[in-house]
Write a protein that binds this DNA or RNA. Structure first.
Length: 645
RNA sequence: GCUGGCGUAGCUCAGCUGGUAGAGCAUCUGAUUUGUAAUCAGAGGGUCGGGGGUUCGAAUCCCUUCGCCAGCUCCA
């Protein structure tokens, strides 16, 4: 039998008999590699360890430490789940079951819904299958023949997939009694699955099409070790504890009320303080950066939205128009037309450009009833919006400034990780965009060049652009690693033309300006939600609704506590006094649960020496401090917007 | 909007197969005068999300509507 020459990752070349499997290669290299191997990469192609290698090739063994390892492992876990489902629930029809970023899922069509109890039973069955150490056996079928087998099993979803996607001879994987149409690769056997958990069951639709079959999706996750799984589950718990909806209630920050309607936010006094601090900082920053602050009406004549193109391209996100004196008015879903009207209110000279109009503009968008989510997805929200009108040659610089501003925002609010996406048009779907192909190419090129010049890594997302132009989106990553889309910088060559905007150039002639839409926090509501989760409700001093709470040891010290609170308030600090008739311990506990940064315990000792005993939220008793020293310290923490102290 | 789950006091939740509501915390009152994460006692508080139906009788069963949760889809 002839030999094949296999190139290993370290560059060495070794000869093996033709038809050797990657598993055999691994064994030849080291028993440990063979034991750990999950799959193999042969000439760039991911294959099973048991696949024969017939020609010279480069071979790499995929192990748990390879980036692809976990994905393959989870895909195999999904098959394991499906195998368990078919054993326990023969009436379930399997759909698809891919790995995801955090685990895997498998979709089934079934009349009866799966319950939480079913998940426990399925986990037990999966354990049995793991114990049985069944191989993931790759088998091949000619298309017609294979199709018949799946038809006999009544797996109509699989049949549909095979008809649409299968090669003339297609591969499938057998795990015990379960046979799945699948490209692979898979791990060698079920015994290799070490740590998994089924997490939830939720609805889904066949191929994501809501008119198609309703399916039940079972979510699970799998890791190489129990330790990793436990760490993941702990992270889920942590996320639950940080949930802004829960903290919003516990800390009395905001509410959403049935009586008022879904997706509409009530900012309570404590949330209101946080919002005001954010807005004050932002406004000062806007002014410093050459923006002009404006205000525009919440409802305007529908006619404007026809000009802007919103009634064509955005109607399904708009509340219905209201009739006023034989005319129609529209609650604004965006702030752009208002700012455009300000621009248009008089002739503009090139000397005033770029004109940066900023507004904390409240907009209303119709969201389908199932999509609202706390502060993160609502129907009424305030954008920290701005529209920059500039000459074409200024626009790249303006985009750069916006991104630089966005980075400053991230830093100020304690975020240090981010991801950047460039959203371009979908070239196959040009009718959903306003403007010509040339204009789009120009705009996308300009955004791309700007990011490259700033040396910012980014991903290009085709088909993600808005109807009037391409955009750069910035996602921040919060304290527990979740990304949130907030900042958006959008290029617009469309609206200026639709509204007939002009400026007089140095040549004395009229020209059309270019417009940049940008929001940095995105929406104040969403940003607030993200902030709550990022800080787990424990805001830095400058944002904390109550910055310090006086805790008089007994009623005797109430007067002193009130006097000091008054002094600190005069120094513009947010201080309150817990004058309830409760044990000190109980009041400390409450302040702690309210995540107030500083507790000031005052009793005889403090009253005599004009001091306060400082208890820090995160590290407990910090000893006595002169009142004036404490005030100065607080001032510094606030003015520097310190996130740690 | 779609699929599934759910909606009981301000909050968190109990209430088996229908017999007309209960706990802890919170609130109020009283006692206690507190030194770094829950003092004790008493009281008030619910047309069981809304509407309709089945039944002698509904928090419990059915229909409908609103809302919430997990997803799908979509987005700041």
């Amino acid at each position: 039998m002839p030999n094949v020459r296999l190139t290993l990752p370290d560059g060495t070349v070794r000869e093996f008999p033709q038809g050797v499997t990657a598993l055999e290669v691994a064994r030849a290299l080291s028993p440990r590699l063979a034991a750990e191997g999950l799959a193999a990469r042969v000439d760039g192609r991911l294959v099973d360890l048991t696949e024969p290698i017939e020609t010279d090739a480069s071979v790499q063994i995929i192990t748990p430490s390879s980036p692809e390892g976990l994905e393959i492992y989870r895909h195999s876990s999904a098959h394991l789940l499906a195998a368990a489902v078919l054993e326990l629930f023969p009436d379930a029809h399997p759909g698809v079951g891919p790995p995801t970023e955090t685990g895997f899922f498998y979709d089934f069509y079934r009349e009866k819904p799966f319950t939480e109890d079913d998940l426990a039973k399925l986990e037990a069955k999966m354990q049995d299958l793991v114990a049985a150490d069944l191989p993931y056996e790759r088998v091949y079928f000619p298309k017609e023949e294979g199709l018949k087998i799946f038809e006999q099993k009544g797996e109509f979803l699989k049949c549909q997939l095979i008809q649409e996607k299968a090669e003339p001879v297609f591969s499938a994987y057998r795990t015990g009694k379960f046979l799945d149409f699948c490209r692979g690769p898979h791990i060698p056997s079920t015994g290799r699955v070490k740590a998994f958990k089924l997490l939830s069951v939720a609805g889904a639709h066949w191929k994501g099409d809501e008119r198609s079959y309703p399916l039940q999706r079972i979510y699970g996750t799998a890791f190489f070790s129990k330790k990793d799984l436990d760490a993941f589950l702990a992270k889920l718990e942590e996320a639950k504890k940080r949930d802004h909806r829960r903290l919003g209630k516990e800390l009395d920050l905001f509410s959403i009320q049935d009586e008022a309607g879904a997706g509409l936010i009530f900012w309570h006094p404590k949330g209101g303080i946080v919002r005001k601090e954010i807005e004050d900082w932002l406004r000062a920053e806007l002014v410093a950066r050459g923006y002009d602050l404006v205000y525009t009406p919440h409802a305007m004549r529908l006619h404007l939205w026809e000009i802007s193109g919103h009634t064509n391209f955005y109607r399904e996100n708009m509340f219905g128009p209201m009739e006023v004196e034989n005319d129609h008015y529209q609650l604004k879903p965006m702030n752009c037309p208002g700012h455009i009207l300000i621009y248009k209110s008089r002739p503009r000279s090139y000397r005033e450009l770029p004109l940066r109009l900023a507004e904390l503009g409240t907009v209303y968008r119709y969201e389908r009833s199932g999509v609202m989510h706390g502060l993160l997805r609502v129907r009424g929200f305030t954008q920290d919006d701005a529209h920059i009108f500039s000459m074409p040659e200024q626009v790249e610089h303006e985009v750069e400034e916006c991104i630089e501003f966005a980075f400053q925002v991230l830093k100020t609010f304690g975020f240090d990780q981010y991801e950047v996406e460039l959203s371009a048009r979908d070239p196959k779907n040009s009718e959903q965009y306003a403007g010509t192909v040339e204009e789009w190419e120009l705009a996308e090129g300009a955004l791309k060049k700007t990011l490259e010049r700033m040396k910012i890594p980014f991903k290009t997302m085709p088909g993600e652009a808005v109807f009037y132009g391409p955009k750069i989106d910035l996602k921040l990553v919060d304290a527990i690693g979740r990304p949130w889309q907030l900042t958006t910088v959008q290029f617009d060559f469309n609206l200026p033309r639709r509204f007939g905007l002009e400026y007089v150039g140095s040549d004395g002639r009229g020209h059309t300006p270019v417009m940049v839409h940008r929001a940095l926090l995105g929406s104040i509501e969403r940003f607030f939600g993200v902030l709550i989760e990022h800080y787990a409700g424990a805001f830095p001093v400058w944002l904390a609704p109550v910055q310090a709470r006086m805790l008089p040891v007994s009623e005797k010290h109430l007067e002193y506590a009130r006097r000091i609170a008054g002094e600190l308030r005069a120094a513009k600090l947010r201080v309150d006094v817990d004058d309830r008739n409760e044990k000190l311990n109980a009041r400390i506990r409450d302040a702690q649960l309210q995540k107030i940064p500083f507790m000031l315990v005052v009793g005889d000792r403090e009253a005599q020496s004009n001091t306060v005993s400082v208890r820090r939220r995160d590290s407990g008793d910090a000893g006595a401090k002169a009142v004036s020293d404490f005030g100065a310290w607080m001032r510094e923490l606030i003015d520097s917007r310190a996130t740690k102290w």
